[in-house]
Structures are given as structure tokens and as C-alpha cells.
Design a binder for these strands. Structure first.
Lengths: 311, 311
DNA sequence: CCTCTTTCGTTACAAATGTTAAGACGCACA
DNA sequence: TGTGCGTCTTAACATTTGTAACGAAAGAGG
């Protein structure tokens, strides 16, 4: 059996060398092009590709004296284990990307070897996973906290999905509580549920009640359901469980049709990382913090400030 | 108790933000200077300082298909666990620095939490430690494999030495075997020796028989001793124990005056990382490999090639 | 209160990096 | 043996980054 495409291998080596020379040795691209025997334009391309594919990675050191005031205040106000904020970005899309990147950076440096990571449902989570898969050298072990399997699959652009997935083989929302309960007891489902408490870390998004909510866009809920939930005091959702300002579950019919880790079980988990940013999410994040579901919060500075002011 | 110098804190925050914007978000320095409200010149300075002090770090991903041919060949030829090579540098001084940096990168991503690291004696080791101390977020636990304490202390330029040190409180070379043996049994010495087998990793240099050898420059040995050792077939040293081409100890008087982990004990350790590069070290590295003292080798590509050709 | 020193901002310039368009080259395929 | 296709190099140009010189502002010490 061959070792794969020789041309790609060579490209890879070039990329690694270019990255080494540029970032580790501070050589100019001109110099590197001479050392590697390629054009300078190509060196630029190699470096770009190295960044894109995660061959070269940037990390910000996270030691004790990195905290800004808002971070410290959040930690003590809500009894959190840790908080990490990113500076403000120029658009909401970029902000979510930023926060996802920060979360991936946060996780990857704390997750070792064969550790398992529970993952929630949602757009932010999905972004985090993409970054993670790229940065990881050994495959990650990921356990899903909810149904809705399709959500975790590699998205179009990404290359190989460098992870071992243990997904709950079920849709997120079933058509009846009865069916949910039956599925819940299926051995293959049961098996994943048993893994969940064994993971060292969990990463979940925090949903707001805005029109942008993933759960709406995906068609899991319709606008009507949504409006009713709002009337009942919902400010956001965790793992698709809607909660009120205090983080208490709003008990509605749909909730009993969900294939999703319960809020009580979520609270029992250690190292639950909540990932969410943007002012529209402030109420939802506050609910998550008050409910005690989240141990570590990754957000942006503006939102962190707002959380402090509104609590 | 105050939280330290407010001005330095602020400088730190600026530095972190600048690094985040520049490396994570790809903003231009111009843009960053506006966001941060400082001059562009200062942004350049902040970024420079962030790199210097390890606030921002570059890492090359080390997955399975990074290996170049020489690395794979070395692994299989000598039954090693891993090999990492750096591309050639422009001078020997830079080469050593490169290799030290690579070693630090290698170690830091495999060392977690409260892990302990054994460290040998020598210039290369010392460089590795400096890089390590800078990159680590939590203090490292380092255990010395030899006496010669002064060698491990923070060198002039470095800032805080972010490590917990467990050093053998003794010179490297004592004036008699008798004294060595007595010292060896002192409780404080014994204590460190007992820690050594418990560490997860060890990093050692590999010395050659050149005039540049640390052990000579430090005045531990004089030129005479050195010449005699060469006549007896010495090709290099590990932890100041001189060995022949096959890696067998050359039993001389000085060896029995050394406060240094024995070669047999060294061989028993897991994950011993040998760090050495440059053509002058080829014979010494070969001896270390043949003797089976080293599990992981960090060197440069040119030397790797030479190792294969001369074995 | 006045210097001295240090640090930062400003500016202008030099060097490096990134982008683009045109053409050369190799390679698959008819 | 062409003919397309993609990828590379080359070269010119635009943008970004790095450096150096100078002057203003702030703090230290007399």
C-alpha cells in the first residue's frame, strides 16, 4: 500500500517548511523562496494555505494576569471557573466566528490525549467544532448532547473531519413524547447517554429568542411556537430547552418531545463551556449563568460588559 | 494587597488585544492602532513584545503526515518513538536556537497540568528551558538529572522563571568518589533522585567531543582530561557520562565523581528526548541512539541525513 | 520651578508583503 | 500530435509593515 499522493506530500512539506522559516525563524518570504526553490508568490500561497489548514497555529497565552476587569467581575459575580472574552469585531458574523475560534483555542489547550468532549447543538457549536477539528493533531472524541445528528457532520468546506463521533442517532425533535421515550430507551441511544457524564468537558451554545435562532432557521420550531414561548417568559435556550430569566425550564409540550440532555443533567456536568456573544444574547446568557448551567463562559467584551450592567 | 502595577497591566492588555486582532483576526496594524487608540508605531512595538514574551505563540501542527523521509527512516532504523527535525539554519548558533525552540514546542504540547519534566545539563537544555518557561501558562515542574545547580537558574535576559524547580543541590563534579557517594546519600539529594523516575518526560542534550563542549567551557573538565577521554574512544557525553561509538560508558575516574543520573537509570526512563544538532554531533548522537538512551530525537534535517548515511 | 530622562506620537522613507495579469510549462486526453 | 486545463513563474504594482529621526508631553530628581 502506497503512502498516498506524492505530489500532495511534497506540497505539505513545502508548506511546513515555509511556515517554520517564516514564523519560527522570521525569515523574509524572499529568502524562503530561495531556500525552497520556488517563487515568492508561491511562498505567499503556501503560508496562506498553512494558516487556512491549521498547519501553523497562533495561540494567545492564557495565564493568570491576562484578565481584564470585566472578566474578573463575571467570574466572581457568577461563581464561574473561567471567562474568556474576545475584543469587538466589525460584524456579527465575524463576532461569532471570533468567539468560536476563541472557544476552540480554549478547549484544545485543555483537552488532552483520549479525552472526550460533549457537544451541544447549534451554529456556534458547529463553528467551534470546525476549528477544533482543524487544530487537533490526534482525532478528537466527541459525544453529542442532543439528537439532530446531521448538524455535526463535516460542513461543505472543511477537509477531513478529524474526530471520532459518538452521536445520538435520532432527530432533535420527535413527533410525540411517547416516541421520544421509546427512542430514549433504544440501546444505541442509551449507550451515548451513558458516555456523557464521563467526558471531561462540554461545549454548548446559548440561544436567544431572536429571529436568527438556529432552532428556528432549521425548521425545528415554527414562528408560532416561538411566539408562545416568548409569552411564557422564555429568554433563550440551552440544548433546545427554553428557559426563563432565572434559568428555569419552561415546561411546554415540545420539550417533552426533545431528544436532548436535560437541564438537570447538564448542571451536573463539570466544565461546561458556554459559547455566545452579541448584545442580543445578553438575556439568554444571564439566564444560563443564573441557572448555574455554565462553568466557563466564552464571549466578547461588549457582551461581558452588558452582562455586568444588567445583572 | 494591590494587583500590581496598573500601567504594566494596561500595557499587557494592549499587547494581548493587538496580538488577537493581528494574528486571530488579520486586521492591519493601521486598523488596530485606530481600535486601540495608539500610534501604528506602537502597535508594531506591542506585537514585537508579544512575540518576544510569548504572549502570542506559533505552533506547527505535528500530525502523522508531517514526516519527511529522513525522519521516518530514523524512527524505524533506531526504533525511536518520534523524531522531529528543523530545516537548516544559517549559522550554528541559530541552529541550536532553532532546535531548542522545536524541542520546547514538542514538549509543551505533550506536557500537561502537573506533569514533571526531568532536565539534563548543558547549553541546549538550558535554551529549551528558557523557551519552555516563556510558553508555559502554568508553572512547570522540573527535576534535575544532574548536579550543577547554577546551570538551571534563569539567565540574565529572561523575565520570571515560570517553573517549580527540584534541583539536586550539589556541584556536577565533586573532588572525590567518596564525597560524591556521601552527598548522594544526603536526604535532600536522595529526595530529588526519587522523583526522577516519576516524571513523564526527560530532556537531555547530547555532547560532542569538540572544543565547544559545554562541559569544557564551564571548566568542569580541562583539556587534558578531554584528550585522554578521546584516546579512550569517547565520542560524546550524555549527562556528562562519556560514551564510545556503541554508547557504552567509558569508565574513568571522573565518572565516579559525578553527581549525575547513571546511564542505566537514564535508559530506564520513558520519553527521553535527545536534543542536538549540527554535523559535529553526528558521532555523539549515533552513540546515544545505539545505546538506546533516547526515545525521541530533535535535530536538524542535515544532521538527520548524516545520521542515516553514517550508520 | 527647572532640567533631565524617558516615552510616545508624528512623519517620511525603506523594506517586505500581497495582488494581479501575462505567459511558460507539464500533463491528461482525444 | 495537438488542445485544453491547471499550476507555476515572472514582473509590475499597490498595500502593509518596519525603521529612523525629531519633537512634544509626562514624570523624576534636584
Amino acid at each position: 500500500m502506497g503512502t498516498g499522493d506524492a505530489k500532495l506530500d511534497y506540497e505539505n512539506i513545502l508548506m511546513i517548511r515555509a511556515a517554520w522559516y517564516y514564523y519560527m525563524e522570521n525569515y523574509t518570504q524572499q529568502r524562503i523562496s530561495e531556500l525552497l526553490g520556488v517563487s515568492r508568490a508561491r511562498v505567499i500561497g503556501l503560508l496562506e494555505k498553512a494558516r487556512q489548514t491549521g498547519v501553523i497555529q497562533f495561540r494567545i497565552r492564557q495565564d493568570g494576569n491576562r484578565y481584564i476587569k470585566a472578566e474578573q467581575d463575571l467570574i466572581s459575580r457568577f461563581g464561574l471557573k473561567d471567562v474568556f472574552t474576545v475584543p469587538k469585531a466589525d460584524s456579527l458574523a465575524n463576532l461569532n466566528e471570533s468567539i468560536a475560534q476563541a472557544a476552540a483555542m480554549y478547549i484544545i489547550r485543555r483537552l488532552k490525549g483520549g479525552d472526550f468532549l460533549n457537544v451541544g447543538y447549534g451554529d456556534t457549536t458547529s463553528r467551534v467544532l470546525n476549528h477544533l477539528a482543524m487544530a487537533a493533531e490526534e482525532p478528537l472524541n466527541m459525544v453529542s448532547l442532543t439528537g439532530g445528528v446531521n448538524y455535526y457532520l463535516p460542513n461543505t468546506s472543511s477537509n477531513v473531519f478529524n474526530a471520532r463521533l459518538y452521536l445520538i442517532p435520532s432527530p432533535l425533535l420527535l413527533s410525540s413524547q411517547k416516541l421520544r421515550d421509546s427512542m430514549r430507551q433504544e440501546p444505541v441511544v442509551e449507550e451515548v447517554y451513558r458516555m456523557i457524564p464521563l467526558s471531561r468537558m462540554s461545549v454548548i451554545g446559548i440561544g436567544s429568542m431572536s429571529r436568527e435562532a438556529t432552532i428556528l432557521k432549521n425548521g425545528v420550531l415554527n414562528e408560532n411556537d416561538f411566539t408562545i414561548l416568548k409569552l411564557q417568559g422564555a429568554v433563550g435556550d440551552l440544548l433546545s430547552h427554553f428557559v426563563d430569566r432565572e434559568g428555569k425550564l419552561i415546561s411546554v409540550e415540545q420539550d417533552r418531545q426533545l431528544m436532548s440532555t436535560s437541564l438537570e443533567d447538564l448542571r451536573m456536568l463539570e466544565n461546561v463551556i458556554g459559547v455566545a456573544g452579541g448584545l442580543s444574547k445578553v438575556d439568554a446568557i444571564l439566564a444560563a449563568l443564573r441557572g448555574g448551567y455554565v462553568d466557563i463562559l466564552i464571549t466578547d467584551e461588549e457582551t461581558a460588559q452588558a452582562l455586568l450592567e444588567q445583572s
